[in-house]
Design a protein around this nucleic acid. Sequence first.
RNA 1: GUGAGUGUAGCUCAAUGGUAGAGCACCGGACUGUGGCUCCGGUCGUUGUGGGUUCGAGUCCCAUCACUCACCCCA
Length: 437
Amino acid sequence: MAKRHAAPKGTRDLLPPETAVWARVESIARRVFGLYGYREIRTPIFEETELFQRGVGEATDIVGKEMYSFVDKGGRNLTLRPESTAAVCRAYVEHGMQQLPQPVRLFYIGPQFRYERPQKGRYRQFHQIGAELLGGKGAESDVEILLMLVAFLRELGFADLRVLVNTVGDAESRAAFRGKLVEYLAPRKDQLGEESARRLVTNPLRILDSKSPEEQALLAGAPKLEESLTARSREHFARVLSSMEASAVPFRIEPRLVRGLDYYTNTVFEITSEGLGAQNAICGGGAYEGLVDALGGPPTYGVGFAIGEDRLIEVLPPSSPARDVPRPVIVRAVPWGRRLPSFAFEDADASGRFVELLRARGIPALDFEWGDAKRAYAAAEAYGSEWVVLIGEDELSADRQTIERVVLREVRTRHERRLSVAEAMDQLSETGPKALG
RNA sequence: GUGAGUGUAGCUCAAUGGUAGAGCACCGGACUGUGGCUCCGGUCGUUGUGGGUUCGAGUCCCAUCACUCACCCCA
């Protein structure tokens, strides 16, 4: 036998029936985002490496050690996208979207790539559903995008969401705070771990969300970011908080929430969920005021989020509407009737015609070759079907060219009825599976 | 990149260092002529891979790969 292959490390095949849930989650995302006036953007799956270096930031782990980079045959340095915000901003600039009525509202759905050790909820190819609002005015944009995010998650059936909000201040606030923080930590450098000691130089703010108890104890006495906020940042955050309170979406201020991407300014947020192990964030985002500018566009206010679709589906409530996937009606011609064994292929054709009638009514249906009813039940189980239609000789017309009746059986209750074709059609139209978008 | 655990049939798992098995699933047949039952039979394995110890390795040792979980970090 030839060598067998496995999906590359950190990647996986998504198979039915799970893929139907993915399709439903994405279709619900499109619907909800559409309600807020957001439209889909599809950017390339790879970009110039430099885009991410400039956009995401050299100091981030993503750029520093997690990029899938390669050189193509033309000598170009390219990278499989590790996130999509930078690409969306690149497209905004490239296509002159600042000339459209502002703000521009965009969403995207697709795979992302980061070279990391896989674990629960973390893959090298993973999928994000995200949205970006570009050219907005500030706090109200932050709130709009947060409310849309929560609306989407509620549509998916999430009841208890932990929405964490914080501000990291604008560039000026951060520069001031950075100075104070380094001033406090530098003399205490020996109390920091290796990683945090390095960050003291590269990205001191990141030390704040360290999980180490020793470092947290040390940080208890450190200057607070809040105290370094400029009046502008302070006002921005106050407006976000008051709008959020008015919205009736429960949230919590999490002062230690910093986020790992360099481009965030002012508002940052995160939504976490139980049941995901160590990787408990299903969604993160925030505002970025300098990104479009840094990518050669005009100064533009941006805010967005990214949802980890893999994680989202991992913790999807059992009752989620996204689990309402079409389960085909199983139709089978069975060897019942006194004239066996003449009952055969032409009757299987008859079942095929019945299936086409169901499909024409928008009812997903699947037929099997003539044979034992046992197979029909096995198939119903495999497809999660709720209805089985059986057609025996007695259900056919005298010349056996037409189906007059069918036996309609509900799998769950084992209750069955012998109905005319029209009655069965009506019953299935009413309570049967629908071809969902 | 670091650490721990696990690799036996498509799936779930057995097998004291001594002939690689069971259940489920799948395929075929018998039976059943309102039927998911029952019975018979069948396909599927270089025990992740490569070395070593041994008369003999699924089992012990080393390496390697993969998976899982955690660190780091993030979605």
